[in-house]
């Protein structure tokens, strides 16, 4: 390999870099365009010839969001709902995963298949009965409706991810606690949970992402402006002032920020969640 002639090894390298460059433009250009559009004034958006960088950078779009309590409320709602969903999902997923990973019991396989297939049930199929349920329970247009229904798609992942993680921890750890006279409950919270922090972080990051991005349930199960989340906020912004592109892009940048930050600080965990359904499980 090392003794190949210059031309023989240079051409593949050149092609590799060319491919990487094309890929970079393909992946990055739309994102850069969004980001710089959010810093343009609205008159400049469709300037000809098109320019990536604004002539004058302006934060007018961001300021108008920060000065609008309705729009800030979208962000508050999104953080609140995603946060609560993440906490509840983690709690239930850890308990379930512990049950799956440490015990064998009747119906385990059925429950497991049920959970896996839940991942693939179309949200639109569930939406219709959910709508009826939410109205019947009198929780239409509340946080509770969103938190409850989001769990149906966060829990399957969280349980699969956590079960996979707990399976990697040796059972001797629990047995040590049991021999010392502790219960499985003690073993779970004192030994297993502290050791599962990486798995819990991965699960939390992914759960947060799923809830933050949810659109269909939020669109249908809430109605008042006070209850809308960021994706719905963007949708409404689009309906109201279809031509304020800079503000919509600023809203999108702010709406993507938590996920970008989570991704950059917890990349390893993030990818673990992302590939959980396909590579692991």
């Amino acid at each position: 390999m090392a003794r190949r002639s210059f031309t023989k090894s240079a051409l593949p390298t050149l092609l590799t870099y060319l491919g990487l460059g094309v890929g970079l433009v393909f992946a990055g250009f739309p994102i850069l365009w969004m980001f710089f559009t959010s810093l343009k004034s609205n008159t400049e958006i469709f300037a000809l010839p098109p320019r990536l960088l604004p002539d004058t950078f302006t934060s007018v779009a961001y300021l108008s969001i920060f000065n609008d309590p309705t729009k800030l409320r979208f962000f508050f709602n999104s953080y609140l709902v995603a946060g609560v969903v993440t906490l509840l999902t983690l709690l239930i997923a850890v308990l379930t995963a512990y049950g799956f990973s440490r015990y064998s019991f009747r119906g385990k396989n059925t429950l497991n298949v049920f959970i896996i297939s839940t991942q693939t049930v179309p949200p639109i199929t569930l939406l219709i009965p959910y709508f009826g349920m939410v109205v019947a329970f009198r929780i239409f247009d509340t946080y509770f409706a969103l938190v409850l229904t989001y769990m149906v798609f966060t829990l399957p992942y969280a349980i699969l991810l956590m079960t996979g993680y707990l399976n990697t921890l040796p059972k001797e750890l629990d047995e040590a606690v049991l021999v010392d006279g502790g219960s499985s409950w003690t073993a779970l919270w004192r030994v297993i949970v502290p050791l599962s922090v990486p798995g819990i972080v991965a699960t939390a990051v992914y759960t947060f992402l799923l809830s933050w991005n949810e659109f269909l349930f939020a669109l249908t199960l809430t109605k008042s402006m006070d209850m809308r989340t960021v994706p719905i906020g963007i949708e409404m912004l689009m309906g109201q002032h279809a031509f304020e592109w800079n503000e919509m892009m600023a809203m999108s940048v702010l709406g993507s920020l938590p996920l970008l930050v989570l991704y950059l600080i917890a990349q390893r965990y993030f990818l673990a969640g992302m590939t959980a359904g396909s590579v692991k499980s």
Partner: peptide, 16 residues
Amino acid sequence: LYILPWLFTAVIIAII
């Protein structure tokens, strides 16, 4: 950088 498109929610992809 190549993973970035995946981080955006469908609504944002739509408006981009």
